[in-house]
Write a protein that binds this DNA or RNA. Sequence first.
DNA 1: TGAATATACTTAACATGTTAAGTTAAATAG
DNA 2: CTATTTAACTTAACATGTTAAGTATATTCA
Lengths: 165, 165
Amino acid sequence: MNQSKTNTVPPEDTALNPGSDLPEFDRSLPMSLLRAREAVMKKFIPSLKEQGLSPQQWRAIRTLEQQNGLEITELADRCYLLMPSMSRIAQNLESRQLIERRSVASDQRRSALFLTPKGLDLFQIIAPKSAERYEHITEEFGYGKLELLYELLDELVASLNQSDK
Amino acid sequence: MNQSKTNTVPPEDTALNPGSDLPEFDRSLPMSLLRAREAVMKKFIPSLKEQGLSPQQWRAIRTLEQQNGLEITELADRCYLLMPSMSRIAQNLESRQLIERRSVASDQRRSALFLTPKGLDLFQIIAPKSAERYEHITEEFGYGKLELLYELLDELVASLNQSDK
DNA sequence: TGAATATACTTAACATGTTAAGTTAAATAG
DNA sequence: CTATTTAACTTAACATGTTAAGTATATTCA
């Protein structure tokens, strides 16, 4: 279960390159981040699924609750989704009447998205549960450590994006 | 670009629940982890794509390079992939003759996976580039901070899994 | 003004994530 | 020793991630 700690050394005869000085891949940053993310999500997904929402759909709904009437491109940015995904999610939520789209008068290409009363109801059912989970995580893990983690993640992103020139 | 720092407060008239004491979702742990992961992956994906590999396919190959002949279930565990994904990836890599499967004599249901010479060649092309990227990231971000990040991520996962009882 | 270009999406195509439902082979129970 | 159950996958089905191509509306500029 805990790969990085049980340290199961492979038998010598199975490594294809025993003497090479190629790097060790045992600690993979993407995998560590993925594991952490999945572990966190596991706490939130059940109450979403209970309401028939995927994490991405929930992201869209809670972003609209904060600022209703966002255009789809802006919503995609804030939800950290690519446009094709956002487009499909908008169609899905619209078909379930959780959101409504109205085309922008000044530019017919654009459409703004609005939470419907039904969508807001759903938000209000899920939000308190999510908040509770989040508080629980904060208590268990420690507020200070959590802040430090956010800080490090932000710095990591900054460091990586900087070297993109 | 940096949502969590620019702190763009939405105009009052767009929030659907301005006075509510519902939690703030601006800082989302899953999203922070996702952003960090994507930023890291962006550094590694190009050299993989150059060789026609997805990150998951690469994970499988480098795991097999470390320990050849793993069974598919074990490989899925180590790659942090679900069986259906692993199954499809194995089929893909097998069709490209990067790996080879041999059924286990003692149990006909199982099959063990082996890197082919062609697969090993590919590993040896990609591995040094990956190592170089990783070293660059370590230098830019700082070795100490990186270690601290790993530590925090591990602790977070432990903390979350612990409360699963 | 009218043609070329750019913008804001949507659709398509394909790999992956995820849950559920097969299949086939082993283990176990009666 | 046969019938049931379990184990190790594979297949199916559907949402998402991702890149590329398509469509309709604006904008630009000749």
